[in-house]
Simulated scan of single mutants.
Amino acid sequence: MGNPLLISGAVLSAGAALLHLGCIVFGASWYRFFGAGEQMAQLAAAGSWRPTFITSSIVLVLAIWSLYAFSGAGLIPRLPFVRLALCVIAGIYLLRGVVGFAFASFAPGGNGPAFWWWSSTICLTIGVVHFVGTWQAWSQLSRVAA
């Protein structure tokens, strides 16, 4: 059936990718709602390419992370370096979660403290899901795909 935590991690990363894609499609109001900062919202409203480029990059990374978690769960074919990739993915989510709490005190990038608290909690949660799922599947991840 697959590792439930890695499946959950894949779905969470895919969901985050879709929400970021929504910011590109729906523009400034979504950037504001999700706390991307007033500068990003204004750039999007002005038709600048920068918010689309930055957000598209995030969408691509999150989609790849989702695929790696699905691969680690055994739901899609084994991707190269799946073990290493899942460790790095979990580490980045965990680091972003922890560091983001420190940012809440001075709110860089035009984002308010609420953005940093919420996004850090979400990233920390997704990181724990990936970490524990990877730990649970570790022995299966070391096997060479047939």
Results as ranks from 00 to 15, higher is better:
G110I: 01
V99M: 13
G109E: 09
L94C: 02
I89T: 02
P113G: 04
V132Q: 02
V99A: 14
A114Y: 12
Y93I: 10
A107E: 09
P113W: 12
A90G: 07
Y93M: 13
L79P: 00
A104N: 03
V99I: 14
R96D: 09
R83N: 13
Y93W: 15
Q136P: 00
I122H: 10
G112K: 11
V88S: 01
L94F: 01
V99Y: 08
R83A: 13
S139M: 11
L94R: 00
I89F: 08
L79C: 03
G133F: 07
G110F: 08
Q136D: 12
P108S: 04
T121E: 09
G127A: 10
W117P: 00
R83P: 00
V82F: 04
G109M: 06
T125D: 05
S119A: 12
A85C: 09
I89R: 01
A107S: 14
L141K: 03
Y93T: 08
F81Y: 14
F131Y: 14
L141H: 04
A104P: 03
G100C: 01
W118K: 13
V129T: 05
I92L: 15
G100I: 00
G133S: 08
V82N: 13
V129K: 01
L95E: 06
F81G: 09
L84N: 09
S139Q: 15
Q140V: 11
A107Y: 10
A102W: 13
A90W: 05
V132F: 08
W118P: 00
T125A: 15
W116I: 02
I92K: 08
W117R: 13
G91P: 05
P80G: 09
L84A: 12
V99L: 14
F131G: 12
G112R: 09
S120A: 06
V132K: 01
F103Q: 06
A114G: 05
I92P: 02
L141R: 03
R78M: 12
I92C: 10
L86Y: 04
A85P: 00
N111A: 14
W135P: 00
I89M: 04
R96M: 09
L94Y: 01
L86T: 05
T134S: 12
G127F: 05
C87G: 10
R78Q: 14
V82G: 03
S142D: 15
F131D: 05
S120M: 05
P80I: 11
L124A: 11
S142R: 15
L79K: 03
F115E: 07
T121K: 12
I126Y: 07
P113E: 08
G91R: 07
W135T: 09
G112A: 09
C123A: 14
V132P: 00
C123W: 09
F131Q: 10
A85Q: 11
C123S: 15
T134R: 12
Q136T: 06
T121D: 02
W117N: 07
Q136K: 11
A90D: 04
F131A: 15
T134P: 01
G91Q: 06
L86M: 10
A114L: 15
W138A: 05
S120Q: 08
C87V: 12
T134K: 07
A102H: 08
F115N: 08
